[in-house]
């Protein structure tokens, strides 16, 4: 089980990666009138990048911890103890 901090780091890295992927520099590279696999290159790039990002974040989360990390459930319970 990876420690919660590692999961946080991965998520932060993915976030920054996403900013890069969907930002001008990289997108500009694919912004060409070309067709790949029958699909305009820009479209293909964007959707693939999007899917990859989702998959990686899923992996980061699910591989992150088996138990709730950083949620301090005991404290949550105490905080809720007055709740209906």
């Amino acid at each position: 089980m990876t420690r919660p901090g590692l999961m946080n780091e991965r998520l932060m890295a993915l976030f920054l990666l996403g900013l890069l992927l969907f930002g001008p520099p990289l997108m500009g590279a694919f912004d060409r009138p070309a067709i790949a696999l029958g699909i305009p290159v820009l479209y293909l790039y964007l959707f693939l990048a999007w899917l990859c990002l989702i998959v990686f974040s899923a992996l980061a989360i699910e591989g992150g911890a088996q138990t709730p990390s950083g949620a301090e459930p005991e404290d949550l319970d105490r905080a809720f103890e007055d709740e209906g």
Binding site: N8, L11, F15, G18, L19, L53, S57, I61
Partner: peptide
């Protein structure tokens, strides 16, 4: 999508 990634 991005916001949720750092939504954690």
């Amino acid at each position: 999508t991005l916001m949720f990634i750092c939504g954690w």
